[in-house]
Design a protein around this nucleic acid. Structure first.
Length: 434
RNA sequence: GUGGGUAUGGUUCAGUCGGUUAGAACGCCAGAUUGUGGAUCUGGAAGUCGUGGGUUCGAAUCCCACUACCCACCCCA
């Protein structure tokens, strides 16, 4: 091998793509019901889009972006998240002048972050996500949270916890930030080095520190939740009553702060408890200032991202009967086995006729003998094998074998496509019957 | 970025104290069955032992460096 796949990347092999396709089909159906439309944005954007939106103080911008200069001297960054690109596209297409709210989803959007890979963490990962623009009310927040939870539930993932918090808005956060700063500066010498580095850059993140000593010191730290302005307070209360109405159980985690700087008011995470510890499957929140930050009018937004690799990995850890997402198997209905290569044109013509009729068929493409062709057809799981030898051709027939029952019969070559189609359609109906 | 672990046919792994031609299982190919799959049996192909250097008469084995992957911290999806 010349090289291997780059660190932190994953090949998705056929067994796995079938699972992705099943998940994607479910996502498309659920988002359709909720009125979200698909949007696709470029894999790379101008770097400034991310430094402005995700934020200079975030870990993503500070140390994780794949940034390079292109041949035209532009600073380009492979997208570390998709929301900023969607906002940019939304504005660039002038969609903010259309009737709002407008709702988007993106599927299998690649994200690049230069991190140290480990279980559940890659340098290239893919997210499904939704964004809703122009909906200030908490019902929009509740809608996407329900959508995320419903999707997981529909796949069979129920052993997850929903955490919510409100991190305020430009009205109330500055005052709170000052209160927190005063508190933290008093504790400076009792906190770890990381915390001290973070105090002035992003004090909210200090509250998230996992060092036990810091946690003890931060027990009595002022919490945003107690310093919300009336609007934010009402919004958060409204969100909770909506989640209650939808029958969702959740935990208010006053320490929950997200890694992107653009969030306002609602933030939330859906976390799975793996045997290796907690892992966030879905994360999101409200970003009422982001559209304006990117140069548009003041339009509120709310959205989330779901880590597709993580969700599938979690699904895989569940028992077979817990998993509701069933990948579609790729099994041919019929395999054509010509005995001799000279019969290939007849076999090929039949194959093309069958496919035109919508039958999933395949034929021998090797110099193998009949016996080996049967072995191969069996490995593919073919329901029928069509045998084409000198005997059959001289009689103008093809011999069909039902691989399950072993039954064999001869069908005139001219009628073969229709006969096979009828038989396969009938059989699949029987399989569906109760 | 820091710390720990690992690296041997396609896959999962064995390989003793450094010693002759590096093994097994599964998978793959073929034959037994000259035109018929699953089971069984027989045979075959497939390895620069992660890469580069060093020690040695001799290295998969010992030493050094590098790379990759896994795990943890940090952070996140």
């Amino acid at each position: 091998m010349l090289t291997q796949m780059p660190k932190g990347t994953k090949d998705v092999l056929p067994a796995e793509t079938a699972r992705y396709q099943a998940m994607e089909a479910l996502i498309r159906e659920k988002t359709r019901l909720a009125g979200y439309q698909e949007i696709r944005t470029p894999v790379f954007e101008h770097t400034v889009l991310f430094t402005r939106s995700v934020g200079e103080s975030s870990d993503i911008v500070r140390k994780e972006m794949y940034t390079f200069e292109d041949k035209g001297g532009r600073s380009i960054t492979l997208k570390p998240e998709t929301t900023a690109g969607v906002v940019r596209a939304f504005l660039e297409a002038g969609m903010h002048n259309q009737a709002l709210p407008v709702k988007f989803y993106y599927l299998y959007s690649p994200h690049f972050r230069y991190e140290a890979p480990q279980s559940g963490r890659l340098r290239e990962h893919h997210q499904f996500g939704v964004e809703c623009f122009g909906a200030p009310e908490a019902s929009a927040d509740a809608e996407i949270i329900w959508l995320g939870m419903d999707l997981l539930k529909s796949m069979g993932i129920t052993d997850v916890k929903l955490f919510i918090n409100s991190i305020g808005c430009p009205v109330c956060r500055p005052a709170y930030r000052q209160t927190l700063l005063d508190y933290l500066h008093n504790k400076e010498n009792l906190l770890c080095g990381d915390c001290n580095d973070r105090i002035d850059v992003n004090p909210l993140r200090v509250l998230d520190c996992k060092v036990p000593g810091c946690q003890a010191q931060l027990k009595d730290a002022p919490r945003m939740i107690d310093h919300l302005c009336d609007e934010c307070k009402n919004h958060f209360a409204s969100l909770q009553s909506l989640l209650d109405a939808a029958g969702l159980t959740y935990t208010v985690d006053t320490g929950l702060v997200r890694g992107l700087d653009y969030y306002t008011k609602t933030v939330f995470e859906v976390v799975s408890d793996t045997d290796r510890g907690p892992l966030t499957l879905v994360g999101g929140g409200r970003y009422d200032g982001l559209v304006e930050e990117i140069g548009g009018p003041s339009i509120p937004g709310v959205g989330f991202g779901m880590g597709m690799e993580r969700v599938l990995a979690h699904l895989e850890s569940l028992s077979e009967d817990q998993q509701k997402l069933k990948p579609v198997q790729s099994i041919p209905d019929l395999y054509i086995a010509p005995l001799d290569r000279s019969l290939a044109p007849i076999a090929f013509k039949l194959l093309m006729q069958l496919r035109t009729l919508g039958i999933k068929a395949d034929m021998n493409h090797t110099t193998r003998g009949l016996r080996a062709q049967f072995k191969y057809a069996d490995k593919l799981g073919a329901a029928y094998v069509a045998i084409l030898g000198e005997d059959e051709v001289s009689k103008g027939v093809v011999k069909l074998r039902d691989m399950k029952s072993g039954e064999e019969w001869e069908v005139p070559l001219a009628d073969a496509p229709d006969v096979m189609k009828n038989r396969i359609v009938k059989k699949s109906k029987e399989a569906c019957a109760p």
